[in-house]
Design a protein around this nucleic acid. Sequence first.
DNA 1: TTAGAAATGTAGCCATAGCTACATGTTATG
DNA 2: CATAACATGTAGCTATGGCTACATTTCTAA
Lengths: 154, 154
Amino acid sequence: MARRSKTAPAVRKPAAARPAEVQASALRRTRREHATETAKDYVEAIADITALHGEARAVELARRLGVTHVTVVRTVARLQRDGYVSAKPYRSIFLTEKGSRLAEESRQRHEVVVAFLRSLGVPEEIAQTDAEGIEHHVSPETLAAFKRCAASRR
Amino acid sequence: MARRSKTAPAVRKPAAARPAEVQASALRRTRREHATETAKDYVEAIADITALHGEARAVELARRLGVTHVTVVRTVARLQRDGYVSAKPYRSIFLTEKGSRLAEESRQRHEVVVAFLRSLGVPEEIAQTDAEGIEHHVSPETLAAFKRCAASRR
DNA sequence: TTAGAAATGTAGCCATAGCTACATGTTATG
DNA sequence: CATAACATGTAGCTATGGCTACATTTCTAA
Ligand SMILES: [Mn+2]
Ligand SMILES: [Mn+2]
Ligand SMILES: [Mn+2]
Ligand SMILES: [Mn+2]
């Protein structure tokens, strides 16, 4: 690395610099989580909508996800390709077994994160919003810690 | 909405169904956060590398971010376009004033999240990894709650 | 001083995920 | 039972952010 030596001054000596390779794998994991995030949010929304309205239509998904129906249609096609949903043209969208499992997992995880944030005193709506992002980046260890902590503060 | 009524059974009646518009805006915020995430992780890495090695080269950024140098070069071009860094061909990369500010903010936020997870009993390396994703989805309210909670457990 | 190694740049590919504009299908209702 | 409103589909655009393969530049060291 130190091929070019130069005059730049050392600005701040970080106490414990994370080794490059460790940070790289953390960022890789974050990117992997982002890749699965869409599927989780969609199947969860499909389950919610089905529970509420008896069926999940693209329009309602678009409303709930804050995107246009075009985006929904294309994403649902990917979900179908990946085995999470079944869908036929102009019909409503159904979760497969695989999709249902993922939806249920996602719902539970979402609830744990929200309950935990609530237990810290974060207001409901803010907790819901933060959870929507945080939920995808919580390791099993941290999820367990969240449950423990929320329980101990109840 | 209920234009098509049909035979589908109500499966689960969610206690408090989030209104569609509320969830939509939460997901929109999450997407917005993802759009700024790359910039934050890059400027933070550039600051770290500069502190460690006296300068930030693309190769080292690539190593630390877990991507190829090509990805770094293209992302750095965007960062330059957006005023976070200055860079000249075959030279090292410098943070602008704007970039330094963002790096410092990001570093602090990262530290708060890690310290909080550590205070819950999450091991250091797992805390570091989770923080890499969580840090981008923490509202001011939740960040404050994290600080409070970590302090009270010290 | 120069050859080779290392770093950087460029061309061109891919997938995801957003959009508008317009075409087509479905259904509620007058 | 026709039609208009609504839902869905399609075409085609954008940006981000990954990649490989290859070209070019810089720097080190023989
Ligand atoms: Mn989410
Ligand atoms: Mn995220
Ligand atoms: Mn991060
Ligand atoms: Mn970070």
